[in-house]
Amino acid sequence: MRVDAPGRAQGPALNVASLEVRGGEIVGIAGVAGNGQSELVAVVAGLRAPSAGTVEVDGREPGGGRRRRGARSQVDAGVALVPEDRTKVGVVGDLSVARNLALRHAHRRPFARGMWIDWQAVGRHSQSAVAAYDIATPSTGTPARLLSGGNVQKVILARELDRDPGVVVAVHPTYGLDVAATSQTHERLLAAAGRGAAVLLVSEDLDEVLSLSDRVAVLAGGRVVATMAAADADPEALGLAMAGVAA
């Protein structure tokens, strides 16, 4: 996956970001909040169109050439997103766990049959996903808002990772989770990379970024100011780069 977004300067937004994440690799984004992380995520996941520049997956622009279809082009191109706000964005609280597990894929097989939705297929898929991702819920018909934060995150992970996406974007994936849910989330992300996904990890937790990532990219003022291998990332140098001090 590759992002080139030499966007126009708009506040602290993404200014110049050129970033490449290879398949099987986890690239962590280090940076102080508000330095372009959410803009980078929005552009990669298709929630926002870059004012200039491109996002390429496997050398192609999702929905390329045709009129942009928002996040759907990205979904179809195999871009998964574990969003920052898991209860407001990641799931629809009033809808059942089963429907939330189909949320971003309801327009495709096996859930869609032409213009109709095969709710039985949605139900069957939810049963297996609940088992595979160890989601603690009274039933697959339970509204997602009644689940704990950790289980909501499992629903999201199950939905986003189950189809072997080519690109995974995870934003603060373990924020507010307990130890067990945190380690499970880490395992899932590592496993996704192991299956060949290009993983972009955005986290406030520098330890998390350093322990999971192969490479770390530092975002400051909307620019990728440094990239380094996580193994030999010096916390002090990282901190200076994050503060915008030239290396």
């Binding site: 996941a45 298709g46 929630l47 279809r69 928002g70 996040a71 759907r72 082009s73 990205q74 979904v75 997103l81 969003p83 706000d85 407001k88 964005v89 990641g90 799931v91 629809v92 609280g93 009033d94 809808l95 429907r99 949320l103 971003r104 309801a106 327009h107 869609a112 213009m115 109709w116 939705i117």
Partner: peptide, 21 residues
Amino acid sequence: SRFGFEVEVLGRSPEAARYAG
């Protein structure tokens, strides 16, 4: 229908609808 599902998602959470494409 797919359309009905989109209406349902959009009516309950515009943010999630955008995320869902």
